[in-house]
Design a protein around this nucleic acid. Sequence first.
DNA 1: ACAACTCACTTTCTTAAAGAAAGTTATATT
DNA 2: AATATAACTTTCTTTAAGAAAGTGAGTTGT
Lengths: 168, 168
Amino acid sequence: MPGTRTSFKDMDCGFAQAIELIGDQWCFLIIRNLLLGMTRFEDFNAHLSISSKVLAHRLERLTAAGIIKARVDPRDARGKIYELTPKGEELKLVYGALTEWGDKWSPKAGGVRTEFFDTKTGDMIGGFAAVSKTGRLLDEGRVASRTGPGGSAVRDELATMIARRMVK
Amino acid sequence: MPGTRTSFKDMDCGFAQAIELIGDQWCFLIIRNLLLGMTRFEDFNAHLSISSKVLAHRLERLTAAGIIKARVDPRDARGKIYELTPKGEELKLVYGALTEWGDKWSPKAGGVRTEFFDTKTGDMIGGFAAVSKTGRLLDEGRVASRTGPGGSAVRDELATMIARRMVK
DNA sequence: ACAACTCACTTTCTTAAAGAAAGTTATATT
DNA sequence: AATATAACTTTCTTTAAGAAAGTGAGTTGT
């Protein structure tokens, strides 16, 4: 249907499912602010300059996806407090890696805008990386993906599609 | 202006800049396929069921952002080969982490759809994580962020906004 | 050499959703 | 009782998404 955004629900792929849930500029920014501790409708509205209509829709979508949950402000029944669920909290790494990438490739004189640190030691974090089963760090270049046990024909079809095209 | 999607270019924040460039469902999926080795207009078109109009726009946007680059197929001057630039390749970690999250929270009987492995040893990868400067792995719960040297008033303003609201 | 075919787009047309701004409702404060 | 505030909802206009058909340079088959 024209105008309707395409849904990826039928795509048998974890990545596509993730994008179905949070692959929207506003969702990304809202979750980012939630990860930083923001909780109020008003604050998202003001800080992100998002219209209240769209904000309400996004909060509803994120709630339905089980990424956030709202509760009434115990001090003032008018207010709601929006918080990340464990599912939402686990996006922290994705956000860290994306923030690092963004800061690297949209650089600013003076240094990074955001730095990550270890809350136990206060030390700055070196970065985000893939880790072997034995706890060894792996160079980004060594990381590749393949179809897992729950993988579908879709992924193999993709591989075939790609193989058929190989140049050079 | 109504209908115009909001731009985040003025937001002084690496994360927002990243979202400005790739924070769109189609861009995400296109880059995912590029990371898996897909290179052709036709293949994105068919595999993602994206309309050619929108695909052309996205490829243009990603090219302008310096994330992909096109070259003519040396074997057939009709065809173009789209490839990730180093900037684009560096999104691999973000994609790995997001795929892992999506596979975990949209689970499938039988196991993960996609598994990551070390191209040197063939061993499966344990996961993605934050790493200290000294190369130690950090528990996700220990990771937090703060304003860096290039950080702006925007982030501090956000922190203030949040602090003002603290409950419990 | 010429027709048929491919690839990478454009164009056209319809409709859903984004943005701006004003309005609503249920509490809360004075 | 009057005013304020938080979290939405409504209205209205415009842009962009989606479907489908069309275009043009380049290639292949005969």
